[in-house]
Simulated scan of single mutants.
Amino acid sequence: MMNNSRLMFIIGSNILMLVATVGGRGQPGQAKPACNFPAIYNFGDSNSDTGGISAVFLPIPTPYGNNFFKRPSGRDCDGRLIIDFIAEHLGLPYLSAYLNSIGSNYRHGANFATGGSTIRRQNETIFEAGISPFSLDVQTTMHFDQFRWRTHDLFNQANSSMEREKLPMADEFSRALYTFDIGQNDLSAGFRKLSNEQLKTALPDIVNQLAGSVTHLYQQGARTFWIHNTGPIGCLPVATLYIRNPSPGYLDKFGCISSQNEMAMEFNNQLKARVDKLRIELPEASLVYVDIYAAKYGLISNTNKHGFTDPKKICCGRHDGDLNIWCGNKAMVNGSEVFGGSCADPSTYVSWDGVHYSQAANQWVANLILNGSYSDPPMPVTHACYKHL
């Protein structure tokens, strides 16, 4: 049952979206029509992976997906991700993962994101560190390019409309929305391997590599980009779960690791500056920078106000004292098998499994960002194809 505060928030957000869509930011009576995107092409990590890593390696198990899809759906969540809410808002189907060859439909886009992906390639294995081999350059310069070439050939070779109905049309690539949600794993890998000073020194190269991927897609005809910055990684329960007796200042007043969030904010500041520079380098592109950090931190710092429980609590898994069973896993405890299952009401939790947000939290964040309130320039996703409104 949705509580009154969250209901009023969603109603208010929808009103803002209507105002932004109808009135834009231009003169009265001069509002521009919605962009009518024919497709979405997404690049990122587990925050927007709709089945890629699950198709390539071990499938994500139950209870993932059970709260909405009623089964595991390849998402690291109990239900939908922010990219799913973007697709819904634009009237498009949920994105099929590029790496999932079974039952996929690519007529209205494809998802190249995979759990564990980084912007820069890492010298770690996926089994040791949760790092995907499909870094951003692989997603954009290998997977996307091959997808475009092969679907173009298949479309031209098709003998019937039935054969074409799951393939994109060549002239629609330039009118599609290209979304990015990546960078969190670069920081988490850096926290494991580097000093803070070394990681800070590496940030410009990480940001430039993301910009290089945007530039490559632009050269292939992409024109509209919706780029998320990275969230408050120091607030993830997986980062704070094992902390005992922290020194003064190590945690902020909301229980987040201050140094990790400061690094995330530095990454975001550099990313925003680089997006500004890309607007000059790519004159025909519309580039929207989305402040996911502010949206997520706003929720974490005001959970009670918005009807959520303590953001440090984890919905799925068992974490009691020295007992740590991660979501969907099993362990023997005192001779009995114990399963890391779901809490009774995921809709009241910010964190689903300690690393990823719940569907309810994803929807809360989506309601904030879709109307352009957290974007630069401030425009709703429906109008992202315009440089200015």
Score class of each variant (00 low, 15 high):
F37D: 05
G29C: 12
R25N: 15
G130H: 06
I126M: 15
M142I: 11
S101W: 08
W149L: 09
T50A: 11
F127D: 03
Q139M: 07
G26V: 01
R120V: 09
L136W: 08
I119E: 11
N67V: 00
I83F: 02
T21N: 15
R121M: 03
S13R: 10
D49T: 04
T114V: 01
F134P: 07
V19W: 13
Y98L: 00
K70P: 06
L92K: 03
P61F: 08
F69S: 01
H143N: 13
Q146D: 14
P72S: 10
S96M: 05
H89E: 14
D49H: 08
R148E: 08
G79N: 05
F144Q: 07
T141Y: 01
N14I: 05
Y64C: 11
T50Y: 15
I119R: 00
P61I: 01
N66W: 08
V22G: 09
L18Y: 02
P33N: 06
S104H: 01
A110W: 04
Q122V: 03
I86N: 12
T140E: 14
P133M: 05
L95E: 15
T62Y: 02
P59R: 07
S96I: 09
Q122N: 00
F85D: 06
G116E: 12
R75W: 03
N66I: 12
L99T: 00
V138D: 14
I131F: 03
L58C: 13
R148M: 13
T125R: 00
H143C: 14
E124D: 08
F127N: 04
S101H: 06
N105W: 10
I102R: 10
A110G: 10
P133C: 08
F69R: 01
L16Q: 11
Y94L: 15
T118W: 11
K70D: 11
K32W: 00
A97H: 09
K32Y: 07
S48H: 03
A113L: 06
N123V: 03
T118R: 03
R80T: 10
Y98N: 10
Y94W: 04
I40F: 05
G91R: 05
G109N: 05
D145K: 01
T118A: 06
A87Y: 11
A20E: 14
F144V: 04
F68S: 07
N105S: 15
T114M: 12
L136E: 10
S132R: 01
D84W: 07
R107Y: 13
M17H: 09
C77D: 01
G116F: 10
L16F: 02
P28M: 06
A113E: 07
A55R: 04
W149M: 11
N47T: 07
G51I: 11
S13P: 10
F144I: 03
H108L: 02
T118Q: 09
R107A: 14
G116T: 04
P33H: 09
R75D: 11
S48D: 12
Y106T: 03
Y64D: 14
T21Y: 01
P59F: 09
G24H: 05
D84Q: 09
F57L: 14
K70V: 00
N123Y: 02
G115D: 13
I102L: 13
A31K: 00
I82K: 00
S135E: 14
P38C: 02
R71M: 09
A39V: 00
I131E: 07
S135W: 14
A97G: 12
G91S: 08
A31Y: 08
R25Y: 14
P61D: 13
